[in-house]
Structure formats: structure tokens, C-alpha cells
Computed example of a mutant assay.
Amino acid sequence: MTQLLPLDRAASERADVDYPTLARRRLLGSAGPRVFPVAIGGNAFGWTAAEDAAEAILDEYRSFGGNLIDTADSYAAGRSESMIGNWMHSRRNRDELIVATKIGKSAESPGLGTGAVTAAIDASLRRLRTDRIDVLFLHVDDRKVPFEETLVAVDENVRKGKVRFVGASDHSGNRFIEARVIAAQLGLTPFIALQCRYSLTHRTEFEGALANVAEQQRLGVMPRFALDGGFLAGNYRSRSELDLNSTGNVVLGGDAESHLNRRGQRILATLDRIAAEHESVPASIAIAWLLSKPTVTAPVVGVSNAGQVADLVGAIDIRLTRQQVAALDEVSV
């Protein structure tokens, strides 16, 4: 379902980005923006990554042609958005980027009622120092608010130009179906993307009903926790390593400790073997496995230092064989 966009060389020269980088970009959903196949996550910014570290991470990501940055108004109480906004302002590169953020979990504008939606969007725009959010994700399925109210509130902000595209995070397949019906009936902006937890160590939430809906609705899928707290990068192979590496070497998102068992060790052993066959590293192979799935557009990976970026974006150039994908599928069931 994910579509690689053919681009002529003149287009690449106009965009001041090399041709191979542009050729690798994919449509997010059936009608969304063109994005780099790996998104850099801002969940470390303002937490384990200070502003200088965040800028170094973003600079390194951009050096590979990356253009998709994912954050949320609740990450570090908004500091993640502020750091990204300051970086974009200082680099004057806003128009070269696709910025995705999520609303619904912040302390200042919790939930997804009409007032909270508009307040959260306005606050994110101020922190990001921009006039529009490229992809706005609902960060929570707020059952206290009628779904129609939330979708109408978001659509109003789309019509005002504050939001370009809309998606949802951690919603069930049935909620995506419900959203599509409401959007069709009321003429509202439909969802074009989804985020959920999905990795070799955590497959059940996405595979099955949600994956089917994503395919049917041609949604762009941005898996979060792609390396499950650094476990799939091979950072933690024992509890002693977990203690030693708990600071400074974390690829964020997930729960590495819960995978220190036989299944986890089998997954790491398979990643190690396939990484050796590609002269690569486990992190790249874990992301390449996600990219081999037809519904996946761009995994979201948060990092705490710039030195981790090359391994993450390196996954784009890895082509796993059918046998390698099958081996990873089997060991991670």
C-alpha cells in the first residue's frame, strides 16, 4: 500500500535535496504529505535530551534527508515542541519539514472536547513557532466526549488552516471505521494516518483488525516504540546491562525489561544473525522489518543522542529477503 514517489531530477534540484533521498519518500496515507520512511521522535527532547542534544539529533537527521518530525504537546510538558520550534526557527527550514504532533494528554488542555482541541492546537502552534501543524494526531481516545464533537472541532481548525492532515493514535479499528462514517456524513476531514505501538516485540495491538482497517482505508501507519526501549537495538541483553545503560544509551519508547526472557533472547539472536548478513546492526534490521510490512509508512523512533541516528535511517537501504522476514516473523510470534 505504501507508495514510493517517482521524481525527476529537476524536481530534486529545485528542492535542494539529492535525488535518491527524494525518491525514497512515501505518501503518508492515500493523500497525505510525502515523508521520509523513518520519523524522528521528539519524546526525549526536554527529558533525557537537552536543547543542544536535541538540535544535534535534528541536524543529523536532516543531513540524511529526513523530513518527518513527530512530537506531542504532553512530551516534557510541551518542552519537546518548544525545542523543535526553536530549532526550526534558527535553521529557517520549516517549509522543508513535515511536523506531526499529538493532542489530548497535556496537563493544560486535557481531553478532546471542543475547547480543549482548539486550545491545545493554539498552544502547540505557539511552541512550535509555526502557523500550521502538518499532521495532527488525537493522542487519546477520549470516551468522555462524543466522537462527533471531537472530529468537528478538529475539522474547524483544518478549515482555518491551522492543521493540514489528521490522524489518530492508539484508537481501535472500530473507532477508525466510526470516524470514517462520521466524516463522510458530515463532510469532515477524514483520518489519513494512524500511530500505535508496533515492533518485533509488540505485534498484537496492530496486527489483525487494526492492520485490516489501515489497509482498507489506505491509512499511513507510523509505528511507535519501534525499538521497544532500546531492547531491539541490542542495548540490553541482561538485567545488569539494563541498569548500566539506563542513562545515555537509550533509544526511547517501550519496556526493555519485560523482554529479558527466552522469547526476547531468540529475537535478539535472529536480529544479530541477519544484521551480520547485511553488515549492519540489530536496530537497523528491526526497523527494516517494520518497513517490509505493506501498511507501514514510517516508524517513529526517539533517540537521546545524535550518534544513534545513522543506524536508524540506515534501515531504509536494507532489503530483507523473504527468508529473513519469515525468520523474524516466526521468532517474534
Results as ranks from 00 to 15, higher is better:
Ser82Ile: 09
Ala77Met: 12
Arg92His: 14
Ala119Phe: 03
Leu112Tyr: 09
Arg62Ile: 04
Ser74Phe: 12
Thr118Leu: 03
Ser90Glu: 14
Arg127Gln: 08
Ala116Cys: 07
Arg129Gly: 00
Arg91Ala: 11
Glu81Pro: 01
Lys105Val: 15
Arg94Met: 06
Ser63Leu: 07
Leu97Phe: 10
Ala56Lys: 15
Thr114Leu: 05
Ala120Ile: 06
Ala76Ser: 11
Ala119Ile: 08
Leu125Phe: 08
Val99Asp: 02
Ala123Val: 05
Lys102Cys: 05
Leu58Trp: 04
Arg92Glu: 12
Thr118Gly: 10
Arg129Val: 07
Gly78Gln: 08
Leu68Gln: 08
Asn67Met: 06
Arg91Tyr: 11
Ile84Arg: 00
Asp122Ser: 13
Ser90Ile: 05
Gly85Cys: 02
Ala107Trp: 15
Ala107Cys: 10
Ala72Arg: 02
Ala53Cys: 01
Ile57Gln: 14
Arg91Trp: 02
Thr130Gln: 01
Ala100Phe: 02
Arg79Asp: 04
Leu97Ile: 13
Thr130Arg: 01
Lys102Leu: 14
Lys102Ile: 13
Asn67Pro: 02
Asp70Gln: 07
Tyr61Arg: 11
Asn86Lys: 15
Tyr61Met: 13
Arg92Met: 10
Gly104Phe: 05
Glu60Ile: 00
Thr71Phe: 01
Phe64Leu: 10
Tyr61Ala: 14
Asp59Lys: 08
Arg129Lys: 09
Asn93Asp: 13
Ser106Ala: 15
Met83Cys: 08
Met88Asn: 03
Ser82Cys: 05
Leu68Val: 00
Asp95Tyr: 08
Arg127Tyr: 08
Arg126Asn: 15
Ser80Thr: 12
Gly104Pro: 00
Asp95Phe: 01
Arg79Ser: 02
Ser90Asp: 15
Thr71Met: 12
Arg132Tyr: 13
Gly66His: 00
Arg127Met: 14
Ala53Leu: 12
Ser90Val: 09
Asp122Gln: 12
Ser74Glu: 11
Arg127Trp: 00
Trp87Val: 05
Thr118Lys: 15
Ser63Gln: 04
Pro110Gln: 08
Ser80His: 04
Gly113Ser: 09
Glu108Gln: 14
Leu112Asp: 08
Met83Gly: 00
Leu125His: 05
Ile69Val: 13
Arg129Glu: 11
Ala120Phe: 03
Lys105Glu: 15
His89Ala: 13
Val117Arg: 06
Leu112Val: 09
Ser80Glu: 03
Ala100Lys: 02
Arg91Phe: 04
Ser80Pro: 00
Arg62Cys: 09
Thr101Gly: 08
Asp70His: 07
Gly65Thr: 08
Ile98Ser: 09
Glu60Cys: 12
Tyr61Ile: 06
Asp70Gly: 02
Ala77Trp: 14
Leu97Thr: 07
Asp122Tyr: 12
Gly104Ser: 14
Gly85Val: 01
Glu108Ser: 14
